[in-house]
Design a protein around this nucleic acid. Structure first.
Length: 147
DNA sequence: GCCAACGTTGGC
DNA sequence: GCCAACGTTGGC
């Protein structure tokens, strides 16, 4: 007997990176309740993480480039599935909708300056675009965002 | 299967 | 604009 026989899993959290000039949190907000499909993830490691994202998981949206900061929260509305626009079965996407903008965005600099985050993949693997986010770190980020 | 060359991401 | 830190590709 496993502990998850009914298929329920507590919501996990992930950070998703995006270049805001390509697709921003504001774009996701404009998509409203119907949300959007998060596609374009091609990196093998990022895809492994993306495929573990389930409906109901919390998503931190991070802007790369000039901003380099966590700007908003979103929620997965459809667990990972093969990209319908791609022939390659390995490519996966999720659906998501915006939840809320962070009161005060959390900068990469702020995260780097806090030793609690030093082993986190966002810091360790700067090119990873889908970053699993352990609960304690999620809590810290949400605290920093409200301050 | 190794590795040199090249391409990409994203921070600096 | 540069480059570190990857990942990918293709010749051998």
């Amino acid at each position: 007997m496993g502990l998850c026989d009914n298929g329920w899993m507590p919501p996990a959290a992930f950070l998703l990176k995006t270049e805001p000039s390509t697709y921003s949190f504001e774009d996701l907000e404009r998509a409203g309740a119907k949300g959007a499909t998060w596609d374009g993830v091609a990196n093998a490691t990022a895809l492994i993480h993306l495929r573990t994202i389930k409906k109901g998981d919390l998503l931190l949206i991070y802007h790369t480039g000039d901003e380099k900061r966590v700007v908003g929260l979103a929620e997965c509305t459809k667990s990972a599935y093969p990209d319908p626009k791609q022939a390659n079965e390995k490519l996966a996407v999720i659906d998501l909708k915006a939840k809320s903008r962070l009161k005060s965005p959390v900068t990469l600099a702020a995260l780097k300056s806090d030793p609690a985050f030093k082993d986190w993949d966002l810091i360790r693997l700067s090119r990873l675009s889908v970053v699993p986010t352990p609960e304690p770190l999620l809590k810290k980020i949400l605290q920093l965002a409200d301050s």
